[in-house]
């Protein structure tokens, strides 16, 4: 019950800070646009004056894509039919769970790290807004909070990386070893497949779990103005384990909303044929609403978790 209560409270608090969500969305869009321009230019140049442009406007010209990929460099190598609809989400999910971000072109990795740092900075602003009994977005307070907590959040992030590294490198490595051994001695691909699926689920769960714990670490720093980052992290672990049902319940409730939104997006995206400027624009709008919703969910998670922390404390 208390999970639902804080879930609703968090929803209401996020609803009052739409401008903040909008700001975060714009930052995401602008960051991504940095790379969208070179991609646009590559595609435009590859289509050139060829009739391939017509084919690609109507559908997907697989033959062209083969040619494009055979000479692709850097950013261009990320363009594939699997970025369409559900593929975009599945690509990212698989890259995340299998820690394959580092196979992406360096320009995306660099921008991704910068985006991560920026978000670490912005998280202070988000939480300082939600800290108030009646959250209201003000640019000054937002950036003031961001500046106040950045160093501590940054250190917290470094601590979290130890856990992420453990999951990705050690645990992931061990899991891979087990799968390889089982696979090597198996007469069927079924066992290694299910084992792989199970290990992926475990890694995914652990990644989300660590994120959740460090969310509470950040909340603790903001609410208690704690200066000791290490202590905040360890107390966050204690807090989560003490209230495992509530913290996980809340987290997975919002995760479920995320899944539903993603499914709706995939469904809607598939319904829009993009062969005219108007439909391309409508599809673009649907995409941006989806990204906005994802960012909004992140804020919702923060505000709900803060409400829950307050409630349980």
């Amino acid at each position: 019950m208390r999970v639902l209560l804080n879930f609703v409270k968090g929803f209401s608090a996020t609803g009052k800070t739409l401008r903040m969500v909008l700001l975060l969305f714009v930052i995401n869009l602008l960051f991504s646009m940095i790379l969208a321009f070179p991609m646009y230019s590559s595609l435009k140049s590859s289509f050139g004056q060829s009739l391939v442009g017509e084919n690609m406007a109507e559908g997907f010209d697989y033959l062209w894509w083969g040619e494009f990929m055979d000479s692709a460099k850097g950013l261009e190598t990320t363009f594939s039919p699997s970025i369409i609809g559900k593929g975009a989400i599945l690509n990212n999910l698989e890259n995340l769970i299998q820690f394959r971000f580092f196979v992406l072109p360096s320009v995306i990795i660099i921008l991704g790290i910068l985006y991560l740092l920026l978000h670490t900075f912005l998280a202070g602003g988000i939480l300082s807004i939600f800290m108030k009994d009646t959250p209201r977005f003000s640019m000054k307070e937002f950036f003031n909070g961001a500046g106040t907590y950045f160093i501590r959040f940054f250190l917290l992030m470094l601590i979290s990386w130890v856990f992420f590294f453990f999951i990705g490198s050690f645990l992931g490595g061990q899991f891979n070893r087990i799968i390889n051994n089982v696979s090597k001695n198996s007469l069927s691909e079924v066992t290694p497949f299910y084992l792989g699926l199970l290990f992926s689920a475990i890694i995914f769960f652990l990644l989300l779990f660590i994120q959740m714990v460090f969310d509470y670490g950040r909340i603790k720093i903001v609410l208690e103005d704690s200066r000791n980052v290490l202590r905040s992290a360890s107390e966050a672990f204690v807090f989560v384990f003490k209230h495992l049902g509530s913290t996980l319940g809340l987290y997975y409730l919002i995760f479920l909303v995320n899944v539903v939104i993603t499914l709706i997006y995939v469904l809607l995206k598939g319904l829009v044929p993009q062969s005219a400027f108007l439909t391309v624009f409508i599809a673009f709008l649907i995409q941006q609403v989806f990204i906005f919703a994802i960012i909004w969910l992140r804020c919702w998670l923060y505000s709900s978790q803060m409400e829950l922390y307050r409630y349980l404390k």
Binding site: N28, A88, F101, H119, Q211
Partner: peptide, 16 residues
């Protein structure tokens, strides 16, 4: 672009 925007949001799991 959608794929990239979504990827950037996924990156934030490791930090903010």
């Amino acid at each position: 672009l959608l794929w990239l925007q979504h990827a950037f949001e996924f990156f934030t799991l490791f930090g903010g």
